[in-house]
Design a protein around this nucleic acid. Structure first.
Length: 508
RNA sequence: GGGGGAGUAGCUCAGUCGGUAGAGCAACUGCCUUUUAAGCAGUAGGCCCUGGGUUCGAGUCCCAGCUCCCUCACCA
């Protein structure tokens, strides 16, 4: 049973306590990063390798301190080598009975997975690996459960998601993905800040939800005794800030959509939205290109990155293609030719003959065009009827000044020249409400938003970038669950829920 | 919700025709002072996802359920 392995570790823990050693450690402030230790040592030693090192080493012994998790062990009895893994990388450490003396007994009570701190001089082994010769050994945390196998790591997908903490320490590439996620988001923030945007936070709990067409999660506030919605989009609040005179704002917002789950959809996901007063959707295209392409270059090291079977080239500028032209090219129909569009939809097996033409057109677009948009492509000028928050083209009232960015067949970004005419906005809302029977459209009139527009919102460009999907692309992760630390799973999470299935005490 | 796949030791995986459950890693006991998935010898470790059914006998066959993965549907 697993308890056998656990009991063995527990008994080692008990023995450590008997020796007067706290198996759960304490502050250990002197540890240097494994990556830095290796880098410093490489820089300081002669270029011709370890032959000269033996002589030079005695003269200038470099004593270092490191801390991390013990994750591989090669034991020779009185000598052992192990991998010590910290947040920055891996460094080999050497347990030598001669060097450790009495502390060698402590080493014998260690297991894979334990957290330790070490101090000692660096040396190079016969095979050329930089290694810390341990003179002081500190137990920082005894591990009671065995780590996954050293070679394959943790593979079982369900366990990886449910016990991400194991996945992270066992699989280096998983750590790398989430480091990159953090750095990409940090870079986005740096760039936006440098362009004069200010970061804001708007409500996640909303009494009236809007800004997208999606089913919301509903929750309840006890004291106020009111139902609230988890936001599906921050859009309508960010535009209120434009009215208020905050001219360049952005928000990294977690949004919640009560829809299906897939490799591209998680019920909660991160959307970065920004609004720029006195701009339009052309500005948003340039911002999108700059943000994503510079993240590719700066964080991932190249403008050309693999994703699935593709090589994606992020070098700007990216092609701008008109929506109508793409439908003509891939579906072979003119979007103004209702009979042709409906015939094509029928041929594609798209149902809903009673739907409005622009809705059918969009379904044809999704069925025929999207899969072909592999390299970064801006799709411009959507049918106005499916864009209730977007300004109409001055040349054609049926066209909305909107673009979506597609990469690898996935929608990555969505942007508008924002609609700031309150009369048109109110009319669009009413049209959405009237269309409720058709399907999932906005069901609630946001009267306060219309009131805000009546005070006057500057003409503006607005942009939303699906952060999780950007991270998928830039880290070559095929599933959105690979870039979300704790994706939603049935049953909620923890793999070992047996202890929690007892009936909880009744709550008042 | 539809279709397909999977669930066996702590981890990674085999398991033939239905006949008492297997390997590698990890663990334990020995030997071993420069290894790189270290090596050698030995030991221990199992609710074969759950519940029914067929059978003298089920990890294996049948039915139902649970969970995950892929895919479709849904998702401006």
């Amino acid at each position: 049973m697993s308890s056998q392995l656990q009991e063995q570790r527990q008994s080692k823990l008990d023995r450590l306590r008997e020796m007067g050693i706290d198996p759960y450690g304490r502050r250990f402030p002197d540890a240097a990063a494994a990556r830095d230790i290796v880098a410093r040592y490489e820089a300081s030693r002669p270029a011709d390798g370890h032959a000269a090192d033996a002589a030079a080493g005695a003269a200038a012994e470099m004593v270092v301190c490191a801390a991390g998790r013990l994750l591989a062990l090669r034991d020779f009895g009185k000598l052992a080598f192990a991998d010590l893994v910290d947040a920055t990388g891996r460094i080999q450490v050497c347990f030598n009975k001669k060097e450790l003396g009495e502390q060698f007994e402590v080493y014998k009570l260690l297991d894979l997975g334990d957290l330790i701190g070490v101090r000692g001089p660096l040396f190079t082994t016969r095979t050329g690996e930089i290694t810390i010769l341990i003179r002081e050994l500190t137990v920082l945390c005894k591990s009671l459960l065995p780590p996954p196998e050293k070679w394959h790591g943790l593979v079982d997908v369900e366990t990886r998601y449910r016990q991400r903490y194991v996945d992270l320490f066992a699989n280096r590439d998983v750590r790398e993905t989430f480091y990159k996620r953090s750095r990409i988001i940090a870079q986005f923030r740096r760039m936006l800040d440098s362009w004069g945007f200010m970061e804001v936070e708007t409500p996640t709990l909303q009494a009236v939800y809007g800004g997208a067409a999606a089913r919301p999660f509903i929750t309840h506030h006890n004291t106020l005794d009111m139902d609230l919605y988890l936001r599906i989009s921050p859009e309508l609040y960010l535009k209120r800030l434009l009215v208020g005179g905050l001219e360049k704002v952005y928000e990294f917002s977690r949004n919640f959509r009560n829809e299906g789950i897939s490799t591209r959809h998680n019920p909660e996901f991160t959307l970065m939205e920004l609004y720029q007063a006195y701009g339009d959707y052309n500005d948003m295209m340039r911002i999108t290109e700059t943000l994503v392409s510079s993240a590719a270059q700066e964080i991932c090291g190249s403008m050309k990155l693999p994703f699935r079977d593709y090589e994606i080239d992020y070098t700007p500028p990216w092609p701008r293609r008109k929506y109508a032209d793409l439908v003509a090219e891939y579906a072979g129909v003119d979007i103004r030719d209702e009979a042709a569009v409906r015939a094509k939809a029928k041929a594609l097996g798209i149902e809903g003959s009673n739907k409005a033409l622009p809705v059918v057109v969009n379904e044809v677009f999704e069925a025929t065009v999207e899969e072909h948009l592999i390299q970064p492509t801006f799709v411009l000028d959507y049918p106005a009827a499916i864009c209730p928050l977007t300004r109409r083209s001055p040349d054609d009232p049926d066209i909305a000044l909107r673009f979506e960015l597609f990469v690898a067949g996935m929608e990555l970004a969505n942007a508008y020249t924002e609609l700031n005419d309150p009369a048109v906005q109110e009319e669009n809302f009413r049209g959405q409400l009237a269309g409720e029977a058709d399907g999932e459209t906005m069901r609630v009139m946001d009267e306060d938003f219309v009131a805000a527009l009546k005070y006057g919102m500057p003409p503006a460009g607005g942009l939303g970038i699906g952060i999780d999907r950007v991270i998928m692309l830039l880290t070559n992760s095929p599933s959105i669950r690979d870039v979300i630390l704790f994706p939603l799973l049935r049953g909620g999470g923890a793999a070992v829920a047996e202890t929690a299935d007892q009936t909880p005490p009744a709550q008042a």
